[in-house]
Design a protein around this nucleic acid. Sequence first.
DNA 1: TCTATATTTCCAGAAGTATGGAATCGAACG
DNA 2: CGTTCGATTCCATACTTCTGGAAATATAGA
Lengths: 117, 117
Amino acid sequence: MESNEIIEALAALAQTTRLAVFRRLVAAEPEGEAAGDLARDLAIPPNTLSAHLAVLARAGLVSADRRGRFVVYRAAVDRLTAVTTALVADCCGGRPELCNPPPATECRPSRTSEVSS
Amino acid sequence: MESNEIIEALAALAQTTRLAVFRRLVAAEPEGEAAGDLARDLAIPPNTLSAHLAVLARAGLVSADRRGRFVVYRAAVDRLTAVTTALVADCCGGRPELCNPPPATECRPSRTSEVSS
DNA sequence: TCTATATTTCCAGAAGTATGGAATCGAACG
DNA sequence: CGTTCGATTCCATACTTCTGGAAATATAGA
């Protein structure tokens, strides 16, 4: 992953409103949420929100899906994963023994493919 | 970890020069590197670099250690780990089954405490 | 104390980002 | 078509960040 892409993603998330939007969208996975609902619930003017969503989209962190008059946004969780992975990979470049085990392990469900209900 | 801290760290790294500095410092672990050497090697005026280092320090991503006339900077790898972990934790809030296993696993050495030489 | 070296602070201009009002585009429906 | 509603683009203003020259601070050594 390119330095520029990493920076774009970090910059996209490094802003109060956008981090809030992104979090909300992650919570709304996998259905996503329409721009208007986001604007209403977060009390952001639609045009302002639109600008922020555009930044997130350019960074690859959200995707937009038009459904009739609505545009439903979804968080691209895998993109976030790619970015954090790239950061950590950089971090350990060549000398993994320096890195205290970068966990993110809380996130892994106990059993993914064995039991689901 | 507070939203503000996360944003501060993301913003600190979301800048070409600072990301380069941080990477260099990570590579220079655990000895660290003096501000002047960084400035020389990265071809950044010392005052400009100083400003960037201050941003990284405020974000907790580097630490400064004065040694005589030199100030040796070190990357705070654990801080980066904390930030990425917080991001991923946010990401999975309540519904870990949504998250494709956020790896960062490449970073873990095969054996950490068993064999070292 | 005076000088030299390392780093930081001060300051200001240039560049970039955030924000929201008004206008525009796009889709649905009569 | 004309209207309505959702979303985006346009544009101007305010704000923040980046950058580096000049001055200040800190430490070491003669």
